[in-house]
């Protein structure tokens, strides 16, 4: 076969990209299609029958879904808020320190490197009702009178999983913020210092305007990652007690693998996907806007 150089060039390009495209089609697109299809089925053991949108009707009419959605919103909002606030604060702090910066950065990143499921297991031991060290420390500090079953009551269980997620999630935001702080032009700080700006004013008028975009990007990314996170809650409470920590991914897992209701679980999953997709669109729009702005400058 005789091909023009241009065509040959294209063909070569396709050959390099094809393995990934085919692989992703097989391991992502097919399962995704299958998940959407499953959401239209009633699955009973090995038999399944097409029921249209009945699963969605069931899920949307069910109190548990709305409860899960509200839990997800509360969990994501509190975790992300704390990730970003503490991550930014830590980054600003580390940027101020002159020595041992790399060592500190590595140390602070540790919670993020360890498997969430393993970190959560360690926290189960810390929070253990009878012999856990958290109870001992809280009692010694006079914060609580008697040992508390942290994961046994709805409110403290919810606070506990948020705390563990914050412990794990802060380093990632800190890392992004540290990278962002390095891009702030040093001359702007010098100019501010010449004008006699104090620390707050330097943050308010130099650091923040330069960092704002990155804070928005990091927040969006973190919301996407937190709203679909399963591992920590899955290991620590499995959604309990009294569904206090049953966020959507956990509800999905429980519906599928504990309740054996795959059709309904898939419907919950598709609804969760819709939420994530909406956030992804926001993320793309934000990053795109900046790219255009960057070109214009």
């Amino acid at each position: 076969m005789d091909l023009a150089p241009r065509q040959r060039q294209r063909l070569t390009g396709y050959l390099f990209v094809a393995p990934v495209a085919l692989f992703l089609a097989a391991v992502v697109i097919v399962p995704l299609g299958s998940a959407v299809w499953t959401s239209l089925l009633r699955v009973r053991g090995l038999r399944s029958s097409f029921v249209g949108v009945a699963n969605y009707a069931t899920v949307l009419a069910d109190e548990t879904f709305w409860h899960g959605l509200a839990r997800s919103a509360a969990f994501t909002a509190s975790s992300v808020l704390l990730h970003v606030a503490l991550g930014l604060a830590l980054a600003l702090l580390l940027a101020e320190l002159r020595t041992a910066r790399t060592a500190l950065r590595i140390a602070f990143l540790t919670p993020w490197m360890v498997a969430p499921a393993v970190g959560a297991t360690v926290w189960l031991w810390l929070l253990e009702p009878q012999f856990g060290v958290v109870n001992y420390l809280a009692q010694s500090a006079g914060l609580i009178g008697s040992p508390k079953a942290w994961l046994g009551e709805p409110l403290s269980a919810f606070a506990s999983v948020v705390a563990v997620d914050v412990w794990r999630g802060v380093p990632f935001v800190m890392l992004l913020m540290l990278a962002g702080l390095q891009t702030v032009p040093q001359e702007q700080y010098e100019a501010a210092a010449l004008d006699g700006a104090n620390a707050w004013q330097r943050f308010r008028y130099v650091t923040w305007p330069n960092l704002r975009y990155l804070v928005v990007v990091a927040t969006t990314l973190d919301v996407i990652n937190t709203v679909r996170h399963y591992d920590i809650i899955g290991v620590m409470t499995g959604g309990g007690p009294a569904s206090a920590t049953e966020v959507l991914p956990v509800l999905l897992y429980n519906t599928a693998f504990r309740g054996n209701r795959f059709g309904e679980a898939a419907a919950i999953g598709v609804l969760l996907l819709a939420i994530v997709l909406a956030l992804v669109v926001v993320y793309i729009r934000i990053t795109r806007i900046d790219r255009d702005a960057g070109d214009a400058r």
Binding site: P31, L32, I224, R228, L252, Y253, A266, G269, L273
Partner: peptide, 19 residues
């Protein structure tokens, strides 16, 4: 790619398990 890396994994485990 961005889209695929942001899919909720709990959604995909259902078809994966069956597949």
């Amino acid at each position: 790619l961005l889209f695929t890396k942001m899919l909720p994994e709990t959604l995909l485990i259902i078809p994966y398990f069956r597949l």
